[in-house]
Amino acid sequence: MAERERKLATPRGGVFVPRSQVMAVDDVHRALVRIAHEIVERNKGVDDLVLVGLQTGGVPISAKLGAIIEEVEGTHVPVGTLDVAFYRDDIQLRPVLPEAITSIPVNLTGMAVVLVDDVLFTGRTVRAALQALSDFGRARSIQLAVMVDRGHRELPIRPDYVGKNLPTRLTEQVDVSLDGVLLGDVVRK
């Protein structure tokens, strides 16, 4: 869970207290190498491939994935970032989120887009992202890569590439970074 999302988690303004480490730094790296290979395999190469990291948690992951794919295939893959704050369905309900940078480096028409996020939870962020991506052109296909799928979907959305399936309780929080994955709770300061 990225910092921005954590600040919105209940209880408001709480602090994330990790309880257990689910993946260590090496585990995260191995998962990323596997996902990179799966992406290349599924798309039969890297032609017309573009990675889009969701702000904020998916951005470092997409950058790392892009670097690994480039290493494996010897071809540069464009990597963009997308902030879905303006597309969320809960704008009236939650505090206005500070916006992060959206930067899609290519027109997406005809491209195979891999959306990258850290944690897949309710699926609402991904829904917003699908709507946002359609404003950048008609992609040939959109796939979804996440480091952690923690369940509790509220929409019919499924990931194509998963680092780790992690059953969680609704109240728990997952913290994903390139340094590892932590499971814990947000508690009042």
């Binding site: 408001r12 994330f16 916006e99 970074s177 590892g180």
Partner: peptide
């Protein structure tokens, strides 16, 4: 009250995250 300023540097992580992880790890 709930949301601080975001670092606009594309990393999406700020120092409080790092320190939390390091303390908790």
């Amino acid at each position: 009250r709930s949301v601080g300023a975001l670092p606009r540097d594309n990393t999406g992580r700020d120092t409080t995250t790092e320190s939390t992880s390091q303390i908790g790890l």
